[in-house]
Nucleic acid binder design. Structure first.
Length: 750
DNA sequence: CGTGGGCGGATTTTT
DNA sequence: TCCGCCCACG
């Protein structure tokens, strides 16, 4: 305690550069920037520690400062610390901040994602783990292909055994630590077939030296479980194990951590049960509870002071999440001002919603704000399009997060497949991918025969192809196949001593890939060639983390594990758009939660079961707590999704926010109000909105009441086109919505 | 063997 | 509406 007090007294110490302090016993840079609760957690006595950290309460900071504290005050060395996160981005950020705090390189520190660390272990101990030295990692797409192949190999019906579902089945069991032999079918024939598929899939993986994401974790777990001396070695080394986002751990990740910690290690885990949003992909919030029962002596710390959001936003978040059951209990508070109430906007349709959002963004910009301070968050990716169109129209630069990342692009994966096949001839997935790309006359016939042979011999495709004799029946195919093998061999020989980027360059040009795309003008061939060239640059700039592997092998693993999060240098000031899921961990001054409609959010498929509904609520909580100063909720009464119109009611989550915290920008009653009241009693925002959504089409504006000679009265939902082609979408009271030609309809404005 | 048109399905996503 | 996949045709 004395150290803490004196640290507080020496608060001025922070003002010096955070580099290595002159006096190594001076811990003020570590402790001074913390509040009491944070400091208590950072300086917790060695032993099991659980930190429940609310949104915006400085969770990452605590983790980083804890690492620094262990090193500076507890005599730990970076060598003895293992810290795990879920994303590469989080890992990179954490490493950078730890190094800045300590003023030294944390090279010896094992800090990375679960998958990254598991990979590292398996590379170091491939023999003990029962893997070939040149094992390759499958990403989800590769895995899906292999699953599909497995289904075909067993001649199962793909309609009955949907590849995606089989993939899910396999991953689910791996995530829970179950191998096929642990599974009992009971009397269920479908179950039995699935287990059979799982078994066959594993054999295919083994034959081609392939390891999928779940397998990385499971293997790493089994490696320690089955090698007492190895486990002991790592237990001795990593006395300190830190886990970020603990609520997102799945069963095998938890088991892995537990195994490492044993009875003597000091696990320090940080999480927030209210931000658990990945149950659907195996995350187990219960691990927080489990941690407490597995380590009954664990110290519990709660971080409840929020530094991010205004009091109004925080109160809304608290009120919402209070509707969930079985929470660990935590209430965020702030010493900050109430701020602007949460603004609620009821739009006519999704276009109106987008117009509204853009109007508010422009307002923010007009007040001197930046575009990058605004984030549009939505439940599903399909919602982004309307916003993109509106942003383009308004000439506002934007950036959509998510979507295909660099190393996931098909042309990049093709190029990598060449490199992988060169590195490991038995890599069937890669063989399959490129054997006829670019086209070299190896068709389905030839390949079917080849697969059959490989299956019969229990050998890889490469092996089987080498044994194929030139038969008169299929002379062309077998000749082409031998040429392909020769090409791969030749390339392998030629790139032998070259630097990494020249290896990549040589392969993409000599394989004919570049030429293939250059010819293909129709399917964005130009962009693909550029991407391939970018791959060469990526290889040039790549620095292997360690010398455990040859550079090429290391680069290939890197490409799969880190599929290219950093999308180039997109530093332009852009409006940010992303799903609620990908917004976790981020913060923005202005946040729009769009599509707050029952059926969309909470999503239809998550509304029936209580557990999934509560996860949706947590997702909403995550969304709300991203906002620092202004939060807008919006929903559309009518929404066109997948080409069909649906009429929705406001999300139930809106009702869970106390009305006192909400400001409705257009009361819903408006719709039913007689036209006479228009403009007389509703002030401010309503008028602002009308002005913003002015379509300029002959004075007809969204939301305007109109009368039609035959159809009666209605409200304008949408306006499209210009001049004589202008069309209006009117929701008539009697007849419902109709599209009319504006020039012919003779609408009377009311 | 390569391509285009028809069909069905369409949360959320990191590794 | 839009995308990806399968099959039928050239």
């Amino acid at each position: 305690m004395a150290a803490i007090e004196s640290a507080g007294a020496r608060r001025r110490g922070v003002e010096f550069a955070p580099a290595m302090s002159l006096d190594p016993t001076d811990v003020s840079p570590i402790l001074a920037p913390l509040n009491d609760a944070q400091r208590a957690a950072v300086t917790a006595p060695l032993g099991a520690t659980l930190v429940l950290a609310g949104a915006g309460s400085g969770k990452t900071r605590v983790l980083i400062h804890r690492i620094a504290w262990l090193i500076q005050a507890e005599g730990a060395t970076p060598h003895g610390i293992l810290a795990v996160t879920f994303t590469n981005k989080a890992a990179a950020e954490m490493r950078g901040r730890v190094e800045a705090l300590l003023g030294s390189s944390g090279g010896a520190l094992w800090l990375g994602t679960f998958h990254g660390l598991a990979h590292r272990l398996l590379r170091l101990h491939w023999r003990e783990a029962g893997l070939p030295q040149s094992f390759q990692i499958l990403d989800s797409e590769d895995q899906l292909r292999l699953v599909r192949k497995t289904i075909r190999a067993l001649e199962f019906d793909e309609a009955r055994f949907v590849p995606r579902e089989v993939q899910y089945f396999i991953n689910q069991h791996k995530d829970e630590g179950r191998r096929p032999q642990h599974l009992q079918a009971g009397g269920d024939p479908t179950e039995r077939s699935l287990i059979r598929l799982y078994t066959e899939y594993e054999q295919l993986c083994a034959r081609s030296g392939a390891v999928d994401f779940a397998e990385l974790l499971l293997r790493a777990f089994e490696l320690w479980r089955d090698n007492a001396s190895l486990l002991q070695h790592y237990r001795n080394r990593f006395r300190h194990v830190l886990v970020d986002e603990f609520q997102d751990t799945n069963a095998i990740q938890y088991a892995w951590v537990r195994l490492l910690v044993g009875a003597t290690g000091c696990p320090f885990v940080v999480g927030d049960d209210d931000q658990s949003i990945y149950r659907w992909r195996g995350a187990r919030v219960e691990n927080l509870q489990k941690f407490r029962s597995d380590f009954p002596q664990a110290q519990l710390y709660k971080l409840e002071q929020n530094y991010r959001s205004s009091a109004a936003i925080l109160a809304a978040a608290n009120a919402l999440i209070a509707n969930n059951s079985a929470r660990l209990g935590k209430k965020l508070w702030t010493s900050g001002a109430l701020g602007t109430p949460v603004q609620l906007y009821c739009a006519y349709n999704e276009r109106d919603e987008a117009d509204f959002v853009i109007g508010r963004i422009q307002q923010w910009l007009g007040e001197g704000g930046r575009r990058s301070e605004c984030a549009i968050l939505y439940r599903s990716n399909a919602q982004s399009r309307v916003f993109e169109e509106a942003l383009i129209q308004a000439r506002l630069p934007y950036r959509v997060y998510g979507g295909l990342r660099f190393f996931e692009r098909s042309e990049i994966k093709d190029a990598l497949a060449y490199l992988r096949l060169i590195a490991n001839h038995d890599d069937d997935a890669s063989f399959d991918r490129i054997v006829n790309l670019p086209v070299r006359g190896i068709g389905a016939r030839t390949l079917e025969a080849l697969r059959e042979t490989a299956r019969a011999q229990g050998q890889s495709l490469w092996h089987a192809a080498g044994a194929v004799q030139a038969e008169p029946s299929n002379a062309r195919g077998s000749a082409a196949l031998h040429q392909f093998l020769a090409l791969i061999e030749r390339l392998g020989g030629e790139i032998g001593g070259l630097p990494l980027h020249e290896q990549v360059d040589h392969v993409i040009s000599q394989s004919g890939l570049i030429e293939h795309h250059r010819k293909n003008k129709a399917v964005r061939g130009e962009a693909r060639v550029e991407n391939l060239e970018e791959l060469v640059s990526a290889a040039r700039g790549y620095e292997p983390e360690s010398s455990e592997l040859p550079p090429l092998q290391s680069f290939l693993a890197h490409a799969v594990l880190e599929s290219g999060e950093t999308q180039g240098s997109e530093w332009e000031d852009c409006v940010q758009m992303m799903t609620l899921h990908s917004a976790k961990g981020l913060e923005f001054p202005v946040v729009f939660l769009a599509g707050m409609e029952d059926g969309l959010f909470p999503h239809q498929r998550s509304s029936n079961e209580l557990a999934s509904l509560e996860e949706e609520r947590r997702l909403c909580y995550v969304g709300i707590t991203r906002a620092m100063r202004q939060l807008y909720l919006s929903y559309a009464e009518q929404r066109r999704l997948h080409g069909v119109d649906s009429y929705n009611t406001a999300s139930r989550f809106i009702q869970e926010i106390p009305p006192a915290l909400l400001e409705e920008l257009r009361p819903r009653i408006q719709l039913a109000r007689p036209a006479a009241t228009e403009g007389t009693m509703h002030h401010g925002p309503r008028h602002g909105r009308i002005a913003e959504t002015d379509s300029g089409a002959g004075g007809v504006r969204l939301g305007t009441r109109v009368r039609h000679g035959k159809f009666g009265e209605g409200i304008v939902l949408n306006v499209e086109g210009q001049g004589p082609h202008a069309r209006v979408h009117v929701n008539f009271e009697q007849l419902g919505a109709k599209w009319l030609m504006l020039s012919l309809a003779r609408l009377e404005l009311m």
